[in-house]
Amino acid sequence: MSLCPDLPRPGFSFDNCKRNAALESRGYKSKGFVKTGTTIVGVCYKDGVVLGADSRATGGNIVADKFCDKLHKMSNKIFCAGAGTASDCDKVTEMIRGQIALLELNSGRDVRVASVVRIIKQYLYRYQGHIGCALIIGGYDATGCHLHSIAPHGSSMELPYLTMGSGSLAATAVLESRWKPDLDLEATKKLVRDATAAGILNDLGSGSSVNMVVLTKKGNETFYPYDIVCAKGVRSGLYDFPSGTTKVLRTKVIPYEIEKVEVRGASEEDEPMDI
């Protein structure tokens, strides 16, 4: 055994890429990733930002999760809505959240939206689009409220209203026709709900309910869910089986042998916890 064992290399492992390419060239179909074929929406209003997302995760034609959370908390007043490959969105936001927490602890200030955007876009750019996450980042900071989007290749833009994901075309239609500057909170929530619902109803990749978060200078207020657009269907039948449906072929009982019963109480000898 060596005295100084090699640490595992940090970052992604590409060991299997060559093997997978060889398998695929021989006709093996690789499994698809879970994609959040998604509708995410963000709208600025006079006192803050409202982010909305649907709650369906898909793997091919199958609904993988009916109530998944696509709104990720980055800091108290900054949230991030993710579309694209589900694991990429989860991991990237989780990782960046850690960096941001350290940044806030080191500087003693609330981190700005622009900083979060810059950290994420530089991370995504480094992976040249292979990390498939499209994000909308909204929040309130020392410079007011901001709404940015970042595409998987690492380009970003700042706009007063934004949508991303496969349902973005339906959602854009609602936003382009109804958005006005300086809406009040209720009107903005209604607009975000309707834009997300347009995605939910018209895009097969989006579904179930609208989740929402409102970010203002007071902090964040979450609505999980804000509105259930399509509720679960009600079945009339009961599909249970009478007992005995599964035939018992053989029975064998193996009893436990209890060798000794010992009850240990908390004593002075136990090591106390240091504070």
Binding site: R56, V63, L204, G207, K232, G233, R235
Partner: peptide
């Protein structure tokens, strides 16, 4: 199992329930 042939009502309700369930998990 109860091998009695399926009734019309049961078959109709079964198909209704099947589509309700399929709509839950199949996006198409």
């Amino acid at each position: 199992p109860d091998k009695a042939p399926i009734t019309k009502e049961r078959a109709i309700n079964l198909i209704k329930d099947i589509f309700i369930s399929a709509a839950e998990r199949d996006i198409t």
